[in-house]
């Protein structure tokens, strides 16, 4: 199975199972919507009958925002100009690459934890579907497998978070610190920028490596019915080690797909000026389409990597017609 074929067939499997996309999206909505209602209440309470409402229709009034930021409490306090358009993406990307994902506001962290649990629960069922596309599927089977794999996946999740933290504790942060110290007499920003970018690149590579390893670990849990999280992880790592070109090539393609989605949304992301319900609705729909696209890409990662894994491991379970050919070298 070539990288390209895994890549394309993966997308095919995701598109053939829109219900999976729906379930993950519903999880995202279930977590985000109630909190958005809280934030909505916070903004509504602060604006009240004030005429500042007019300024918030036409854009974001930073003078108002200063007052709001001072008085807002709870999750509403996380509202700020950063939520607008492409800046939201950059901020979250920065969090990821600076190891600050788990340093978010505690309500966000709780929401994130809940969503991760949803995801961890669903991922077993999702992978089962991707790994056995020919078998009859039903909601019962999806949740049945989700339940079956949940604890194994949960242990993997814990391991993954530990890896994530370790990357920053032992590699990224010390390297940034090192760059800062080593360049303390450098007077050219471009030089420091370059070194910092290299640290980010390395961090990104490590994160990608870990993410890839855990993807194959999850796949191994489902496809090979592995019980031990540690052994599954080793299996994932071993698989990457045995097929570095294919796994990395595929990962790079998938990452490119994710980047395309983000760039595209970043380019068309609505700004701050929606002043009637129609434009607000359009902006919201565009935002949700972006969220759906991101989820789709996430599933695409799993589907394509599962195809590659099954093809390479020559598992009897694989049923995709194309997967029958082209064993890996």
């Amino acid at each position: 199975m070539s990288v390209w074929r895994s890549f394309l067939f993966g997308l095919g499997r995701v598109l053939k199972t829109p219900s999976l996309l729906c379930w993950v999206y519903l999880a995202s909505l279930a977590v985000a919507l109630p909190l958005a209602m809280v934030v909505r209440g916070g903004i509504a309470a602060h604006v009240g009958g004030s005429l500042v409402e007019q300024n918030l229709r036409t854009g974001l009034d930073l003078d108002w925002y200063g007052e709001f930021a001072e008085e807002a409490s709870g999750v509403a306090a996380t509202f700020g100009p950063e939520v607008i358009g492409h800046m939201a993406l950059v901020q979250n990307l920065e969090r990821l690459l600076d190891g600050k994902l788990l340093a978010a506001h505690r309500t966000l962290l709780a929401a994130g934890g809940l969503y991760l649990l949803f995801w961890t629960f669903l991922v077993g069922g999702i992978l089962d579907r991707f790994a056995h596309p020919g078998e009859p599927h039903s909601r019962a089977r999806l949740f049945g497998h989700s339940g079956e794999f949940f604890w194994r996946m949960f242990r993997l999740l814990i391991l993954s978070v530990l890896f994530y933290l370790a990357i920053f504790r032992f590699v990224a942060n010390p390297l940034h610190e090192f760059v800062e110290q080593a360049t303390r007499d450098v007077t050219v920003e471009r030089t420091v920028l370059l070194w910092t970018a290299l640290v980010y690149l390395l961090t990104g590579l490590l994160l990608a490596g870990v993410s890839m390893a855990f993807d194959y670990a999850k796949i191994a849990v489902v496809v090979e019915r592995r019980r031990s999280a540690v052994l599954a992880l080793l299996r994932g790592l071993g698989f990457i080690a045995r097929h570095p070109g294919h796994t990395c090539g595929l990962y790079l393609l998938l990452l490119t797909a994710a980047a395309v989605v983000m760039f595209f949304y970043g380019a068309i992301a609505p700004g701050s000026g929606q002043s009637n319900w129609a434009t607000v609705l359009v902006a919201f729909v565009i935002g949700q389409a972006y969220v759906l696209a991101r989820i789709l890409v996430k599933l695409w990662f799993l589907a394509s990597q599962a195809i590659l894994f099954q093809a390479a491991a020559n598992h009897p379970d694989r049923t995709a017609p194309a997967a029958a050919s082209a064993p890996l070298p």
Binding site: L35, A36, I43, V83, P270, G287, Q288
Partner: peptide, 12 residues
Amino acid sequence: KWAAKWMVWLQD
């Protein structure tokens, strides 16, 4: 309007 934007940010 603003909570909807916040929500996309949160979902991201």
